[in-house]
Amino acid sequence: MINYLKNIIKGFSTILVGMKVTFINLFRPNVTVQYPNVHPLVRAGSDKMPDNARNKLNVIIPKCTGCKSCEKACPVNCITIETTKVASIDTEKPLMEDGKKRVFWLSQFDIDFAKCCFCGLCTIACPTSAIVHSTDFEYSCYDRNELLVHFSPFNKEQVAEKKRILAEEVKQKAEKALADKQAAEKAAQEQNITDSKIKSSDDQTSANQNIQNNSN
């Protein structure tokens, strides 16, 4: 009987203790923020989103060499890179940010944020830190295709133009090689044959490779 009453009183008192806790909390200041009004990037103090937060990827094109190591490092294959060699006859001779000569045009640099898992492996793999995480986390959209972001500075026509220039150069080279070859053959008739033959065949294979690249 005493136990019975004790249990009732114990149950009742623990409920009162719980009510006390919630009552105290009723008057505490709130800890949430009104998100679009108070943005995590501009919030003060320790609530602010840190600068190294891993959100939407950003590619700094002047830094990118087109080495494709980020593409290889990505565990979900969300990065697609296609490069086009900078033709030597191209009038536009861009420099990298650090002043070096650019070897590849980035004819295509796509990141599919629908696939991206924000692991940060691409930023670690990048030798020039051209691909970095930004603190921009608001990129929801109505169409899934909008998540496929093109970072390449060229549009389709420009890419076609660059490829045409490269093809032209390849053609010129091939013609030059052909001319060289003919000249060499001529010379070979006169002189020793073997050395020049190997050289011309080498040139031809490299030219073929370039053409294949462009057709891709």
Partner: peptide, 13 residues
């Protein structure tokens, strides 16, 4: 509102 204040939120705003 009471639920939100107890839970340190603001509730509908």
């Amino acid at each position: 509102k009471i639920a939100s204040f107890i839970q340190l939120k603001l509730g509908p705003m």
